[in-house]
Design a protein around this nucleic acid. Sequence first.
DNA 1: TGTTCGTCAAGAGCGGTGCTCTCTTTTTCT
DNA 2: AGAAAAAGAGAGCACCGCTCTTGACGAACA
Lengths: 231, 231
Amino acid sequence: MTARTARERVRAELTREITDIARRHLATEGAGGLSLRAVAREMGMVSSAIYRYFPSRDDLLTALIIDGYNALGEAVEQADAGCPRDDFLGRWLTVCHAVRDWALAHPHEYALLYGSPVPGYQAPQDTVPAAVRDTIVFGRIMSEAHHASALAPAQPAPPPPPSLQSDAAIVRSIIPDVPDDVIFRGLTAWTALYGWVSFELFGQFNNTIEERRTAFDHSMRLMAAMMGLAQ
Amino acid sequence: MTARTARERVRAELTREITDIARRHLATEGAGGLSLRAVAREMGMVSSAIYRYFPSRDDLLTALIIDGYNALGEAVEQADAGCPRDDFLGRWLTVCHAVRDWALAHPHEYALLYGSPVPGYQAPQDTVPAAVRDTIVFGRIMSEAHHASALAPAQPAPPPPPSLQSDAAIVRSIIPDVPDDVIFRGLTAWTALYGWVSFELFGQFNNTIEERRTAFDHSMRLMAAMMGLAQ
DNA sequence: TGTTCGTCAAGAGCGGTGCTCTCTTTTTCT
DNA sequence: AGAAAAAGAGAGCACCGCTCTTGACGAACA
C-alpha cells in the first residue's frame, strides 16, 4: 500500500529518515545519548518539528526497539534457513552464533532489547510480535528435534514440578507439542544463551575470558547436551 | 581508623548521607534518574556543593556500584554460610536463590551491576574486588565439590577445546584446582544463573512464566545436573 | 594569641535536554 | 476558490551536569 498523496509520501520518507539517524546515534552514543534535538539538528529541522512524527522520545525508542527485534529475528531466521533441516545440533549452534554475532555487531541495539529497561519507559504491547521472532525459530528447532526423536534421553534430572504445568502450556505456543521436561530444558538453554551474550557484551568477561567465540561455542554445546541434542 | 579532626568526621558523615540518599533515589528512579541536583536538594545543599564530595556523577555511580556488589556478595556469602558444608547441591541452590532474591529486592541496583552499561561510563578497576565476591563463593562450592568427589561424571559432552586452556587458567584463580571441564561447566551455569535473573527482572518473562520462583529453581537444578552435582 | 591558608557552601551561569504552546505557512479536500 | 488539516518555526519552561567565582569559617602555624 503505497502512499497516495505527496504529503503522505514525504511524511513516510521523513519518518524513515528520523529513525535512520536515530539508529545511527543509538549505535554511537547508546540509548541514553539519543537526543531528539540532535536528530532534528542533523535533519536541518527545528526540534519541535520532530514531535509531529514521534510524539515523544519514548515513541521513537519503541520504533527502534521494534526495528531491532526484527533485525535480530531476521538474522536468526536466515541463519537457521541455511542449515540442513535434520541437523538439529548444527541448527542450534548456528542460531546461537547468529544471536551473538548480531549482538556484537549492534551492541547498543542489543542493550536496548535485552539490557536494563530504560527508566520510566514501558514497552508497549506492539513490540511483542517482533520480539518473539527469534524465539519462534528456536522453538521450531526444539519441536522438530523432539518429533524426529533426536532428543536423546538426557542425563537424569528432576522432572518439572506440577505447578509449572500452566506455564509450560503457555510456552508450548512457541515450542509446540513437546512434553514439559523439554519445555523447561529449552527455556533454560535459551536464557543461558542470552545470559552469555549479555555477560560478554556488558563487560562481565573482561580480563577473564579472552577466547570468547570458542568459549561461547563450547558453552552452547554443553547446553545442547543438557537438552539432549545428539552428539 | 576513625577520623581525626572534626572536619574530617563531618565530611565522612556527609559523604555517607549523600550515598544513602542517592541509593534511595536509585531505588525509586533507576540509574538514569539519579540526579546530583535532586540529592543536593534533599540534603538542603546547593547543587554545586555536592561536587566537593563527588567530583562527578560518575564517581557517585561508582560508589553505588561498589556498595551494590558488596551487598550482593555479602548476601551470597551469608546464604552459603548457613548451609551444611557437604551438601553441595543445597549450597548451589541456596546461592542461586540468594542472588535472585537480592536482585528482586534491589532491581535498580542489580540493573546497575549487571544491566546495560551506563553510556559513557567506564567502571574503574577498584570495583573488581567487590564484584567478584559472589563469584568466589560459587567457585569455592565447585572446588570443594570436586575435591569431595561430589561431581558425578556428568552426561557425555565435548571436552573444552585446547585453545581455552589459558582462559581456564585465569578462571582457576576463582575456582581453584579443578580440571578445565569443570571450569567451563561452572562458567556456563554461572552465566545461566545471571541470565535467568536478568531475563526475569528485565521483563522478558512477562506474560509467559508466572511461577517464577519454581521455574527458576527447576532451571537451576537442571544446571546442577549439567555440572554433575549429585541428585 | 593572632594570622594565614586550605576547605567548603553558595550563587550565577553555560550549554544541553524533553516537551509545550503559539503562530505562520503549506498542502489537501470539498 | 475557500475551508480545513497538517507541518514547520520560534519562544519558552523546567530540568540536567558541570564550572567558576566569591565569601565565610575552621585549623594549623608563627
